[in-house]
């Protein structure tokens, strides 16, 4: 699937999205006296702490990791809901970190996001028509009739049939699956080229997840979108994505083709994640279990940030942060075991 999707013209370096040593730190509240006396002691929550990757047009990247590892912050930074603290995001060769005004609006038209909770992401006082019409109005799309046609066709694409019946509805008059489809339609109505989906089905009933996932998958393929799919669930990522990145405490610890990463996980953390996916299989090797919760991102361990929980930690892991090792053509891992 990935081979035919990568557009040959773009593979020669100009990625759609190129993220370079991205950091997003949130300053923590500090008392007034503290702030005056010890401004240097101010603590930062390092939600994203040095992430580097490239995304080609039409490619889908899965980002996996525990809750609190910075997945959502990464997602929101990529669509510029948050400002990066450091590092660069290049979108079609353009730096987006400091875009403002009209340029930011132009970027917004191309880079969109589907949020996790469809019960929260739609304005309760807006009808479906208003929800879908607003982005078109903001970006100056056509006249009222053209907008209406676009809205109806997009609703149809999102599987809300018949579209006309949904136009006057309010969010509270729809099911979770329908709401998420409206949220997807709101994104598609702008015809973006880049889409971030942040756990788009985790708030939905298990029975309707497949429908929404299939919709996202087909749309991404049909429209040639580049997508980042964020989830803690590796089986969903396997179903959706060409490549997979595993995040731990704000860094990508392993990245490679989805099949490769899931079949032959290299990083001990990835191995634990893969082992945690329930598979109905008898005689499977014993699971790798992780003790404890992940450390507090306010207080990141020295050396390798995974070492306190790592079953294979060595002496060096406590002292030196592991470099990024390119294992083969399509796999890199941040672990001392491979350097």
């Amino acid at each position: 699937m990935s081979a035919e999707q990568k557009k040959p013209g773009l593979s020669s370096g100009t990625a759609l999205l190129s993220v370079n040593d991205l950091k997003v730190h949130f300053p923590q509240k500090q008392g007034l006296v503290e702030a005056v006396l010890h401004p240097e002691k101010r603590r930062y929550l390092k939600a994203v702490d040095g992430v580097t990757f490239k995304l080609q047009a039409g490619e889908t990247l899965g980002v996996a990791g525990e809750s609190g590892c910075g997945k959502t912050t990464l997602a929101k930074t990529l669509v510029r809901l948050y400002r990066p603290t450091e590092g660069e995001i290049l979108f079609l060769g353009e730096r987006i970190a400091h875009l403002k005004g009209k340029e930011l609006t132009r970027f917004r038209k191309k880079a969109q996001m589907v949020f996790q909770d469809p019960y929260e992401s739609l304005n309760p006082r807006f009808t479906v028509r208003a929800i879908l019409e607003e982005p078109l109005v903001i970006h100056g799309f056509g006249n009222a009739r053209e907008r209406q046609e676009r809205i109806v066709s997009t609703l149809g694409m999102a599987g809300l049939l018949p579209p006309e019946a949904f136009l006057p509805r309010y969010p509270h008059e729809m099911s979770g699956g329908q709401r998420q489809r409206v949220a997807i339609a709101r994104v598609l109505v702008l015809e973006p080229s880049f889409l971030v989906a942040d756990e788009p089905v985790s708030m939905l009933d298990v029975s309707i997840r497949a429908g929404v996932l299939n919709l996202l998958g087909t749309l991404i393929q049909r429209l040639g979108l580049a997508g980042i799919y964020i989830s803690h669930d590796l089986s969903l990522i396997r179903y959706m994505c060409d490549r997979t990145a595993v995040m731990y405490l704000g860094r990508i610890v392993e990245m490679g083709s989805t099949e490769g990463v899931i079949r032959h996980p290299l990083h001990p953390y990835t191995q634990a994640l893969v082992a945690a996916v329930p598979v109905p299989e008898i005689g499977r090797p014993s699971r790798v279990n992780l003790e404890d919760e992940p450390p507090n991102p306010l207080d990141i361990p020295r050396g390798c940030r995974f070492h306190p929980r790592c079953p294979r930690a060595k002496g060096i892991c406590q002292e030196v942060p592991p470099p990024s090792v390119v294992v083969d053509a399509d796999r890199q891992v941040e672990c001392h075991l491979y350097s």
């Binding site: 929101k76 669509v79 809901l81 930011l104 609006t105 917004r108 038209k109 969109q112 996001m113 949020f115 996790q116 909770d117 929260e120 992401s121 739609l122 304005n123 309760p124 607003e134 982005p135 903001i138 970006h139 949220a183 709101r186 702008l190």
Partner: peptide
């Protein structure tokens, strides 16, 4: 704080 405001910002509002 609710996501629909974030979503509105994302559409360019």
């Amino acid at each position: 704080q609710r996501t629909f405001i974030e979503a509105a910002r994302l559409t360019g509002a």
